[in-house]
């Protein structure tokens, strides 16, 4: 059964001559329990797909469905938000600067009508590898990795089945990235989560996902399995170019001159 479905999705910003088409005719589906990656460079529209699904991008056409139930417009029900959660790119921007970890989690639990707040908060902090001593800290008392763990705990709080990950580690140091990626892998296993992950880093997506869609200028140019990607079996020239670039800076090319 497919958990998420996108069919001919168009998303645009602005109107008339200022209209920018961010996503053009994106079609893919994510099976239940799978981890699906969207890769592309900045401005390719990969994050916009996530934002359209959760109602943060208002203008769209096509079809989006969560567990066979289509979504409409940009208003989503409480039930939707209980089922689909999102982790943002920049942990320095996604936590309210005047709220303690405790306040963030308590409010989330309250909004979803979940009781037993005290124990739930303790459990959530343990789940994301933060001890109870982090509970009453403000964001500025936390490192980037710790903040992202709090953001993950917030996303886990309503016990969703789908988590949308918008470049969850691109603002973090590599050693911290490894910790957060490991945590995400563990959580997916423990809670049978479905991931839809956006990243510009092919290696990260390769580590986290089973299938990936490569996006360029708002269009999905190729959907492939990670095994194929590892073996460089890319059909589209843009995918090959990205794969080349992700293997690192190619020195030889440079001697020939740019």
């Amino acid at each position: 059964m497919s958990r998420l479905e996108f069919e001919g999705l168009n998303v645009w910003f602005g109107d008339g001559p200022d209209r920018v088409d961010a996503v053009k005719g994106a079609t893919f589906e994510v099976p239940s329990g799978a981890s699906f990656g969207l890769v592309g460079e900045s401005g390719s529209g990969k994050s916009t797909i996530l934002r359209a699904l959760v109602g943060l991008a208002r203008h769209w056409s096509g079809r989006m469905a969560v567990a066979e139930a289509p979504v409409t417009g940009f208003k989503r029900s409480k039930a939707f938000y209980k089922d689909v959660q999102m982790v943002f790119q920049d942990p320095y921007a996604s936590l309210h600067p005047r709220q303690t970890v405790d306040a963030v989690l308590a409010e989330t639990l309250k909004l979803h009508g979940i009781g037993d707040v005290e124990n739930r908060i303790e459990q959530l902090l343990l789940d994301v590898g933060l001890g109870p001593k982090f509970r009453f800290r403000y964001p500025h008392q936390l490192s980037g990795g710790q903040r992202q763990r709090v953001a993950i705990a917030r996303a886990l709080a309503p016990e969703p089945s789908v988590i949308l990950l918008d470049e969850p580690t691109s603002a973090l140091d590599v050693s911290v990235q490894a910790e957060v990626l490991n945590l995400l892998v563990d959580l997916r296993k423990a809670h049978q989560l479905t991931y839809l992950m956006v990243s510009h880093d092919l290696a990260v997506v390769g580590h986290m996902c089973e299938r990936i869609a490569v996006m360029q200028a708002g269009e999905i140019v190729e959907i492939m399995s990670v095994e194929d990607m590892r073996e460089m079996k890319a059909a589209h020239p843009y995918t090959r170019q990205l794969l080349q670039a992700s293997l690192g800076y190619v020195g030889e090319e440079m001697h020939g001159g740019a």
Binding site: A178, V185, A203, H207, L243, S246, L247
Partner: peptide
């Protein structure tokens, strides 16, 4: 060494990344 090993790699997939 820790930094080098904590990087995910396309050519050498691993179940878990090494943590520094």
């Amino acid at each position: 060494r820790g930094l080098l090993n904590s990087l995910p790699r396309l050519d050498a997939p691993r179940e878990r990344l090494e943590v520094l």
